[in-house]
Amino acid sequence: MNSEITNEKNKPRNPILAFFFSLFFYGFGQVYNGQIKKGIIFLLIELTLPFIFGFTRLGVFFIGFISILIIGFAFRIYVIYDATKTAKKLKIYKLKSYNTWYYHLAIIIGISTILWLYDSNTANSIMGVRSYIIPTTSNEPNIKLGDRLIADSKAYDQRKPNYGDLVVFQKKDSLKSSMYRIVALPNDKIEIQNNFLIINGKKCRTSFVKETKNGGLDVNEYEEQLPNGHKHKIYTFKKPFEENKRKIPEITIPENCYYLVGDNRDNAMDSRYVGVVNKDEIKGKIVFSYWGKTNDRINIDFTDK
């Protein structure tokens, strides 16, 4: 009878279960193997990493961002490997009090709740960066359709937005985010004539670059210089869709607000349509690209473009 009781309380660990437990629930593979302290430590490390990266501000640099991905991926692989390897060694395993289906279910629910509360948006907020995929051509030629960009959500904690900044914003009455370039600051007077900017009574310097195609349409490419000296390329259609948006009468930008326009001037739903953007509506400044449809879209620094 004692032998039967011993057999009931001893059950080898299944490496496949340990693998999948670790794959989907950080540290749960270790708990399954009876290493509850190690499992908790691994879970805490996973939850702490975003705070470390947020404090060091690594994510706002391409190399730092890639390092974060590599470290996170390597740690996940190690956790899975550790759980699987340990399970293979446990041919004889004395079941712990928490090695029951209802304890396991409670742990899964607990970890799932933590991860739900601590979702990617929360982690991104802590790290101070957020990733965006570009779905339009409204900022070509500088930002291409399909580019994957990183925005620094803490860029304006210590300084104010400036001319030329590419920023992500979300209007208070909208559910979606947009991204355009700041061309006018609070108290500036701005006017648009034939798609060219006049800021505080002075026309921004523009120089013709070339004729080209954009989405099958003929466009002219120019280099534009803003009042602070920031230079960037813009497109204007030879045959625009809406002629009236090429000419905007002079307005004064309210305090704490900014005027944003797309670099693809005839194909952007910018401040000419949605109005000025309040500083509180700005979610971050675009700093670099980490992926795109072609290899040349990797690691483009947008802080000076």
Rank of each mutant, 00 (worst) to 15 (best):
S177L: 08
L166G: 04
R246D: 06
K233A: 10
F237D: 14
P240G: 08
S178A: 13
F169Y: 15
N220D: 15
L226D: 06
S177F: 10
K202T: 13
K239D: 12
K213E: 13
L217I: 05
D157N: 15
E221W: 05
T236Q: 09
N195L: 02
G216C: 02
E191Y: 02
L175Y: 09
E211F: 08
I190A: 04
P186N: 10
N162A: 13
C204S: 12
I234A: 08
S177I: 03
G201V: 03
L197D: 02
I251M: 10
Y156G: 07
F237W: 12
V168F: 09
T212P: 08
E243M: 07
E224F: 04
N228I: 04
K213S: 13
K210R: 15
N194Y: 08
I253S: 07
G164Q: 01
Q158E: 14
P249Q: 06
I198C: 08
K233Y: 10
Y235H: 11
D173C: 04
A184D: 02
F241G: 06
K231W: 08
V219G: 04
A184T: 01
I234P: 04
K238G: 02
T252P: 05
T212A: 14
T236K: 04
E243T: 11
E250M: 12
F169D: 00
D218I: 05
K203T: 14
D173T: 13
Y235W: 12
K203V: 05
A184V: 00
R159P: 00
I190T: 07
E243G: 01
D218C: 01
K213P: 00
S174E: 15
